[in-house]
């Protein structure tokens, strides 16, 4: 099982949203990381076949997904970023409707819906209308619908938005298990989610992959670029202005700054252990406070 992105591009007039992206994805969990406007959602929509690429193509097991049509959609699970639902439907009705759209026979769908409602911990709310659900509950229904047809390729756009920490852990475990023999691509701003479950990270900037690799490989790339510096509180503000500060921690009268920089920012700075978040900030210095 293989999903190939072959010089995939999407242009909106003169604006280039995705620029000549290529990758070969086998079974596993792929974390798509990038700032707002980096082209993640556009790329995901092309991978789902919703958007037609301006150039290049997406191949599933060597066949163009555009030509596969329903055959590809049959193995696809998608959770869009702006997840739409029918407010008047109950959770069960909504999932049954999507099962019918996914071509799952009613007798199978019934069992699958029940099973998935348990997986996302919503069995007790199966007959409640979606309009009464909290943001996190809706998101869990979104995750359940993506899993309905036991997809070979699952694309999740911001799947953990709105989930509380316990739900996030539950979701991460679910995806981690699922990704063992399926292709899961998830995009998120929450770096810790990717750090926890992604087998490979695709770092996207201005429509291109700027880094690809496992979490440890990418962390290696950030190694030597992360510093800790203790300064008086009064200087914290000026440091925030002149450097990329990943973290700021008060210790008595002083402040410990975590600075991302190619060079030693100050004589007093000492090297610190790098994380994926540091790499993210290295590439997206304007995106502070992740």
């Amino acid at each position: 099982m293989e999903l190939s992105l072959d010089r995939l591009s999407k242009h909106y007039g003169s604006k280039i949203a995705v620029d000549q992206v290529s990758a070969v994805l086998g079974p596993g969990v792929y974390g798509l990381l990038g700032a707002n406007g980096a082209g993640k959602t556009t790329l995901m929509r092309m991978l789902c076949g919703i958007l037609e690429p301006t150039a290049g193509e997406v191949l599933f097991d060597g066949k163009s997904i555009a030509e596969m049509g329903a055959g590809y959609r049959n193995v696809l699970g998608y959770l869009p970023q702006d997840f739409g639902y029918y407010p008047g439907d109950s959770a069960e009705e909504f999932l049954m409707y999507l099962s019918a759209l996914k071509g799952i026979p009613r007798h199978i769908a019934k069992g699958r819906v029940k099973e998935l409602l348990e997986v996302v911990d919503l069995s007790a709310c199966a007959s409640k209308k979606l309009k009464t659900f909290s943001g996190g509950m809706k998101q869990r229904i979104g995750i359940a619908q993506a899993l309905l047809n036991k997809p070979e390729v699952m694309i999740l756009d911001e799947p953990t938005a709105g989930l509380d920490p316990r739900e996030r852990v539950r979701f991460r475990n679910l995806i981690s298990d699922y990704g063992e023999n399926k292709i899961v691509i998830l995009s998120t701003h929450i770096v810790s989610d990717i750090e926890a479950i992604a087998d490979e990270v695709l770092l996207m900037k201005k429509g291109s992959f700027v880094q690809k690799g496992t979490v440890s490989e990418l962390i290696d790339k950030a190694r030597g670029k992360v510093w800790e510096l203790t300064v008086p509180s009064s200087q914290a503000h000026s440091w925030q202005k002149k450097a990329t500060v990943a973290n700021l921690r008060h210790e008595g009268e002083d402040v410990v700054l975590r600075i991302i920089s190619d060079h030693k920012p100050d004589e007093g700075a000492i090297r610190a252990e790098a994380s994926l978040e540091d790499l993210y900030l290295y590439y997206f210095p304007a995106e502070k406070g992740v």
Binding site: D82, L98, L101, K102, G103, Q145
Partner: peptide
């Protein structure tokens, strides 16, 4: 109004059946 387009477009039966 319900913004269900992306879901319908990515299902096997898709928007035509819907």
């Amino acid at each position: 109004h319900d913004r269900t387009g992306p879901l319908l477009l990515t299902t096997k039966n898709g928007w035509k059946e819907a």
